[in-house]
């Protein structure tokens, strides 16, 4: 894609999350806890035509490099995503997200009667399924609205 076609300008330093399924960008922002009030410079492109995916979203966040826990959760809603770390306009790292087998302490169980929602000394634990995640303790499935349950 040549420069004059770019819908979103390059960033100097930060993270570019590419190959997010079309329409999921706002959920990615929710996972990153970005709602605009924190002052981050964020660019979002939604439903950009893509040869591989039909339509994809791109999220660019300046001056921020993502933690592994954040990448793990993004992988749950955007399994094909690539995470590009940019420093001084150069992509210094380009990683495909890897769906973890389990996520620990990242999501809250949506079942209010699950033992992990009580004052017990355990963190939440979910196994990652082909579609969604499942609480290891109470077996509850979480598929839609995963971003809503980020702790």
């Amino acid at each position: 894609m040549s420069d004059h076609q770019l819908r979103v300008s390059k960033i100097r330093s930060g993270t570019v999350i590419d190959h997010v399924p079309g329409g999921q960008a706002l959920r990615v922002l929710a996972i990153l806890g970005i709602d605009g009030t924190g002052g981050e410079t964020v660019s979002v492109a939604m439903n950009v035509p893509s040869d591989d995916m039909g339509a994809k979203d791109i999220v660019k966040v300046e001056d921020r490099e993502l933690s592994q826990a954040e990448v793990d959760v993004i992988s749950l809603i955007a399994p094909e995503a690539t995470i590009n770390i940019v420093r001084e306009f150069d992509v210094v790292e380009k990683n495909r997200v890897v769906r973890p087998e389990e996520v620990h302490g990242v999501l809250q169980c949506p079942n209010a009667n699950c033992i992990t929602t009580e004052a017990e000394p355990v963190e939440s634990e979910f196994t990652v399924l082909r579609e969604g995640v499942r609480c290891v303790y109470c077996d509850t499935l979480l598929r839609e609205d995963i971003a809503q349950y980020i702790q």
């Binding site: 079942n111 033992i115 290891v136 109470c138």
Partner: peptide
């Protein structure tokens, strides 16, 4: 126990065998 997942959690804290005799609606 009235909470789902209680037996799974409890079993991780003990070395003796534990039987789940009902965990909530689990």
């Amino acid at each position: 126990h009235p909470s789902e997942g209680a037996a799974e959690m409890a079993s991780r804290f003990v070395d003796v065998p534990l039987v789940n005799a009902g965990d909530g609606a689990g």
